[in-house]
């Protein structure tokens, strides 16, 4: 089975199981609003404990990380970009709320704890597609955050400067 079909089938099973609704289709093309919405919902949960305590500093760190994601994603193979956007578009869509988040609300309406529980459930899911979503998003988002020198204070690390 082609991977894209596989993703749709996986989401369809999740959706059907949770909602009793038939197959739906999510676009594989990038929708910038959806990316921003999903990243801004998941990042504060994933980075809980790593973000600065100060609200302004935390907001700046999140902004930097979202920009880093925006800069990095075009380097992924087109196939992977499409899969990522399909996941993001599904997450951002209200119809998917129970299937994907496990709650009758969209991801950005969840508390930090509920967002972490959602990610945890993906990790433990019997659906490979949700496990892949957990691992894929986790690597992408942590990579984007810890790639920024401004976020290395907690690590007590600075890269050597040469020039």
């Amino acid at each position: 089975m082609h991977r894209r079909q596989f993703i749709l089938a996986g989401l369809a099973i999740a959706g059907t199981a949770a909602l009793g609704v038939p197959l739906w289709h999510y676009s594989v093309s990038a929708q910038p609003d959806n990316r921003a919405l999903v990243f801004s919902a998941i990042l504060p949960a994933l980075l809980y404990g790593a973000l600065p305590a100060d609200d302004t500093a935390a907001a700046a760190a999140l902004q930097r990380t979202e920009q880093a994601l925006h800069d990095f994603i075009p380097y992924l193979p087109k196939r992977q970009q499409q899969e990522l956007d399909q996941l993001i578009n599904a997450l951002a869509h209200r119809v998917s709320r129970l299937a994907i988040t496990g709650y009758w609300v969209t991801v950005q309406e969840l508390t930090i704890n509920a967002r972490l529980q959602m990610l945890q459930r993906w990790r433990e899911s019997y659906l490979v597609i949700l496990q892949q979503a957990y691992h894929g998003l986790r690597e992408l988002l942590y990579g984007a955050f810890y790639g920024q020198p401004e976020h290395w204070q907690n690590l007590n690390y600075t890269a050597p400067r040469f020039r």
Binding site: L47, G49, A50, Q120, Y146, H151, L155, N156
Partner: peptide
């Protein structure tokens, strides 16, 4: 290095953050 480790260390949120604090 930070990205190599952050992407490979397991866990999320505080658990992950506290591992990263022991980076050195």
């Amino acid at each position: 290095h930070p990205v190599l480790m952050a992407t490979k260390l397991v866990g999320m949120a505080e658990q992950h953050a506290s591992l990263m604090q022991q980076f050195n």
